[in-house]
Design a protein around this nucleic acid. Structure first.
Lengths: 185, 185
DNA sequence: GTCTATAGCTAGATAGAC
DNA sequence: GTCTATCTAGCTATAGAC
């Protein structure tokens, strides 16, 4: 049959799982093939430049997921504090309650990861912009809002790192719980 | 000649450079051999279990460097604020002014990195303990001191991550500059 | 669009001479 | 302690049938 075994989005979701578990360098075509149920050649049919293209698709999917989980709650109606709390819940879900690594760790490490830096920059731009916009709504001055937004990303990513180093998700959950207060000052 | 071409510490320092540039998975024996000037077999003579042992030696060297750069300034005499400033300078040097990745990113990613988690846990334990001890000296309650110390590590590691994602060391330097004030409240 | 088969290479690791 | 030479396994990637 010439029919797709899986919807492309489902394929990419399965690739994401492998990259999250193994990192970009550690994810081998064998594992990626096994996880998707697609043979090597089928993977190359969908992703002509191989692992590179698969990683790019995974980063695109990550960005797509951050929309409903983080960006939309931030932009949506309601009081700013409630929106920041919704954002924190979105982050918790996106990072699998603190068990996942942040994307920069997975894709931005080493010379092989340099090609993905522009995508990571773009994602952090969007997130910082969205948080800052919400803070400005409360009357906060733009520069301070942007700095606090940057601090939020720093705290989230740092908490993920420490959570892995210490084998507990406690730092991640603590930081998320504190996030609205930290942002609103 | 049966003489060492390089002192072992110099060999490990060169290995560290490669691991910092490529990450654990990305660092190949070819690169490690090239960087040290030692053939594959010589590397296996010094590190019988190969890359695994090299990484362990690099993590030991990192810990040794954190002593004089971070732990000793924290413990040493003088007012606590001055010691925290010295610690921040030590961190800046250790992380090459923000151009290096944090060790958890380099060695803690993926299934291959799991074996190094205990070492990373131990390092973070020491650092949190040392910072908290300094804060307690100022009269701060122990639990708050430990939490602030944890926040400091989170901020430093998060800033390193964001600095790489955004291709600028500005977040890293900003966080270090703010560190004493954040810790002392 | 998927498969089997395999090319071609580089990885990590070892043997044994000096 | 270092070297040259080499092994095996795994890797990414491709060819071509269905």
């Amino acid at each position: 049959m010439a029919h797709p075994a899986l919807a492309k989005e489902e394929v990419v979701a399965r690739l994401m799982k492998v990259f999250r578990r193994e990192g970009y360098e550690g994810a081998s075509l064998s594992r990626l093939s096994e996880a998707t149920g697609l043979g090597r050649s089928s993977l190359y049919h969908h992703f002509p430049r191989g692992k590179e293209d698969m990683a790019a698709a995974v980063l695109d999917l990550a960005r797509a997921r951050l929309g409903p989980l983080v960006l939309e709650p931030l932009a949506g109606p309601g009081p700013v504090r409630a929106r920041l709390e919704a954002m924190a819940r979105g982050y918790a879900e996106f990072y699998e309650e603190g068990h996942a690594s942040c994307l920069t760790e997975l894709f931005g490490i080493g010379t092989a990861g340099e090609q993905f830096i522009p995508r990571l920059t773009q994602s952090s731009d969007h997130l910082i912009g969205a948080i800052a916009t919400a803070l400005v709504e409360t009357g906060m001055a733009e520069p301070r809002a942007r700095q606090r937004a940057e601090d939020a990303l720093i705290a989230i990513q740092g908490a993920l790192v420490l959570s892995r180093a210490r084998n507990t998700t406690a730092p991640f959950h603590r930081i998320l719980a504190e996030l609205p207060d930290r942002l609103l000052g």
